[in-house]
């Protein structure tokens, strides 16, 4: 008889549950959708390596029963690039937050996208630095409040999905935690895609973003995200004033092109008529 428990709990380290996330945090939902997306592909769960930096969202790999790498702040993508080039057979998944990917690791993000290395990056964007106490992050909407912006943020936020698609990624999508089915489909496509796949998830942070912006309960944040998200196809027909403060969701880019580890392999084979030197270390062991 099968265990009577949540179908996604079998992927988690049960001794570490319940996890540290606040009540109503979106990170747990993204975890579930990732497993659902994974079940749709033919990728082996044991072949996955999860990489993360620092932040609330970067604690996710610590709860998943697979190989994981917890790295320094903002450098998750650099470590993941090394991991992928070192062993191109691995399926490397990067869990990162908005502060980790867009501010401290901003350059790593655009250059990983430009090189089109075969990684799946899931960026949980909660619009604030949640772990350190509610500071304004590069993706905080204009006019939102935080501990470092008591009169409201004056800057325009980063549009991460547009940024990464302009940098040259081959698959970019943005969904929210209120669209779990669409999100898991996007993660499935990202895992199957050969090249840099970036999935931005707009998530709720009731503890800091919600408390500072008059949405104290997880339900009110959930409702706010649900009401303010517009599909990309509909948003294209609307003008800028109508789109103010809205979250545009959907698939931004789906243009597969040649990726980094295949390019390196080809270069080595063209010039030396031998296989990849890094891989030879593994071959001798067999």
């Amino acid at each position: 008889m099968a265990k009577q428990e949540n179908p996604y709990k079998k992927y988690l380290r049960e001794d570490r549950l319940p996890h540290i996330f606040c009540p109503g945090c979106g990170n747990g939902i993204v975890m579930n959708t990732f497993f659902k997306g994974l079940e749709g592909t033919d990728i082996d769960f044991d072949n996955i390596a999860m990489v993360s930096g620092i932040g609330c969202s970067s604690r996710v790999p610590g709860y998943v029963k697979c190989d994981s790498l917890h790295t320094t702040h903002g450098r998750a993508l650099s470590f993941a690039t090394g991991l992928k080039v070192g062993n191109p057979d691995l399926d490397v998944v990067v869990f990162t937050g908005d502060g980790d990917a867009a501010s401290i690791g901003g350059n790593h993000l655009i250059h990983a996208a430009r090189r089109n290395i075969n990684l799946t990056v899931i960026c949980i964007n909660n619009n604030i630095y949640g772990m350190t106490g509610g500071q304004i992050s590069p993706t905080s909407p204009k006019g939102s409040f935080g501990t470092t912006a008591p009169y409201g943020s004056r800057d325009l936020p980063f549009d991460l999905a547009e940024l990464v698609s302009a940098a040259g990624a081959s698959y970019v999508a943005r969904w929210t935690t209120t669209h779990p089915i669409q999100l898991s489909k996007a993660i499935q496509k990202g895992l199957e895609n050969e090249g840099f796949s970036f999935i931005e998830v707009v998530s709720q942070c009731p503890t800091y973003f919600g408390r500072k912006n008059k949405m104290k309960t997880p339900l009110s944040m959930h409702q706010y995200i649900k009401e303010n998200s517009i599909n990309k196809r509909r948003a294209e027909k609307m003008d800028e004033s109508e789109l103010e403060g809205k979250i545009i969701v959907g698939e931004f880019t789906n243009k597969p092109h040649k990726e980094l580890s295949a390019n390196i392999k080809e270069l080595v084979e063209e010039n030396s008529n031998k296989g990849l030197a890094i891989k030879s270390a593994f071959e001798e062991l067999d």
């Binding site: 428990e5 949540n6 179908p7 996604y8 709990k9 988690l12 549950l17 319940p18 996890h19 996330f21 109503g24 945090c25 979106g26 990170n27 747990g28 939902i29 579930n32 959708t33 659902k36 935690t177 779990p180 089915i181 898991s184």
Partner: peptide, 9 residues
Amino acid sequence: LCELSCPDQ
């Protein structure tokens, strides 16, 4: 949908 949306499994 509730199984998928439950942040705490």
